[in-house]
Write a protein that binds this DNA or RNA. Structure first.
Lengths: 332, 332
DNA sequence: TTGAAAGCGCTAACAT
DNA sequence: ATGTTAGCGCTTTCAA
């Protein structure tokens, strides 16, 4: 910038004023500066700008995996909303482990972001509270996280309860759960497993532990889980897959086994990703309140960014609901 | 940092040395500084650090939409590879328009990123060449882009040719193309349309312009395109969908119309997204060489980052190949 | 082993 | 309408 100023015979301040379109610059001077800028190929240094301004105009979104449709689709929704506030969303991955989640906070608190949206899966409340940050942060995620951060979550327990209740309501009596964590710990699989258990209790249908297959959350994991049930000869008449992606693997495995959906086996997923409605048959799923989640996250974070630290941390739970489609039968 | 220095009774330089783990610091001093740091909850300011160091350890990946599976999955692959080089990938969206693509470059050249991977869809070569950047950039994208940037692309024309040839080889004679741009312009739809035309010429099968339905690339767009053909009574025995996402919409529309796949209508997609193999029936698609693309992009960008401006811009075309699955019949 | 000085590139605040 | 001064928080260089 100094080069430009010298070359145009003005002060750096005037150059700065021109670049930022500030008013108090003569038309002739402006022209000259602009000409010099393009002549020299000058470009602003954002790092310096941020050092002065103390803000970057960027909001970070840190998620476990970039390629999971749920997060990718959430990112798209958030990008729309933040754009309206003049903020750009950038997405990075944590890998879903402690390390990566802590990194994300470190990176953000180091002022590269004006705010951070963090999907927490592996950090526990005590670790969270030890984070030194007064920067704006909104946690999302499945877990209950009593902490000093604003927190938006989907209603995992009730969503899973509804999904399972829906299946039981159609007459299913042996509902396999794929991906659930039967130990009921406070993470996503645990919470969804809890809803599964509640629905069974409400319907007075006993839960067979053999029907729970723990698995990871990829397509192949859903596939393998069904193969495993089939190979072990464990009978089931419905499947509650903990995510829609898992459900896709399940559907494939059922097809390979010559089982018809929903006639022989019904299937319900969770997340209601865009693809769910387009599968053949279309996938019944739990919609975790996508738009409301995105709205709440945006509100809370922009409030923190513009208004400084707000009072008590807010904890928002967005209601979930079953969207019935082709992989289930109508309620009996 | 000054606070810490004062409070620990040392100079800021010593604090800096401690933080960066540099050797020439006495053990006692180090302890004291460390203690003061955690006491005061001090955190480095990255903006300042970058201002000095001139690098950030971050590589930007700018794509049209965060939620398109092709890009989300590419991002995951790139993140793996760059992590091995100590670089973190952050993903942002351009919206697929000129404005956003220029923004992405601006943002990156302004030193927020050490390098940028830019998926170009709307910028043309002349605009690209006017970009003032000596920062490391690798373009990805479908278009031929003679420019001064390294450029990695999939072989759109040949991939589309193979897909279409495969269909013609199974006996299909009226292959609908969904999403293609019949004007043959140098963007992705145009290139894939070109491959479609070449395959027809090679097989001496005439192309019926009515079989080309222009559309956007969402699930619903594929659905609507098929409905449109059906409603207009245009007969077809196969579909070449320009992307797998479009193909999913197509499959759904065919199912709704009571048409069986592949018996009545065969379908081929493009991109070979992870989901393709798990659909029922599984989707025949064109694999654009995912791993090789990710490898090349990583090599070219890290070379630029560590080695400074390399000689001539490299232009890499990664070969594509058809992966035959359940939505097509075996070759005749 | 530690510190002082200088400056990275920018802009807010205050001259002129 | 334009310029001067000062300083954002850090690190490189050189001196003690």
């Amino acid at each position: 910038m100094a080069d430009v100023a010298r070359s145009a015979g003005v002060s750096t301040m005037t150059v700065s004023n021109v670049i930022n379109g500030r008013p108090r610059v003569g038309a002739a001077t402006r022209e000259r500066v602009l000409a010099t800028i393009s002549e020299l190929g000058y470009q602003v240094n954002l790092a310096a700008r941020h050092l002065r301004a103390g803000r970057t105009g960027v909001v970070g979104l840190a998620v476990p995996e970039l390629e999971r449709p749920y997060f990718a689709q959430l990112a798209g929704r958030l990008a729309d909303r933040f754009e309206a506030h003049g903020l750009r969303i950038v997405m990075e991955r944590t890998g879903g482990g402690r390390e990566g989640e802590l990194d994300a906070v470190a990176f953000s608190r180091l002022r590269m972001y004006d705010g951070l949206i963090l999907s927490v899966v592996d950090l526990d409340p005590s670790e969270l509270n030890q984070l030194r940050t007064d920067a704006p942060v909104v946690m999302i995620g499945e877990r209950a996280l009593p902490s000093r951060f604003d927190h938006v979550m989907m209603d995992n327990v009730d969503g899973a309860r509804q999904a399972t209740a829906y299946l039981l309501g159609t007459g299913a009596r042996r509902v396999a759960m794929i991906g659930g964590d039967p130990t009921g710990s406070a993470n996503m699989p645990g919470l969804r497993a809890e809803g599964y258990a509640i629905a069974h209790a409400e319907a007075a249908v006993p839960v067979d532990p053999e029907l729970n297959v723990r698995s990871s959350f990829g397509l192949q994991d859903g596939y393998d889980a069904i193969r495993s049930l089939l190979d072990r000869g464990i009978g089931f008449d419905a499947v509650f897959a903990l995510t829609d992606v898992v459900a896709m693997g399940v559907l494939r495995a059922l097809a390979d086994a010559g089982l018809r959906v929903p006639d022989d086996i019904q299937v319900v997923g969770f997340d209601d990703i865009d693809e769910a409605a387009y599968l053949v048959p279309s996938l019944t799923s739990v919609n975790p309140g996508h738009d409301e989640m995105a709205d709440r996250i945006t509100e809370l974070l922009t409030a923190q960014i513009t208004g400084g630290p707000t009072g008590d941390p807010k904890e928002v739970v967005v209601p979930a609901r079953v969207v019935a489609r082709g992989t289930t039968k109508p309620p009996a």
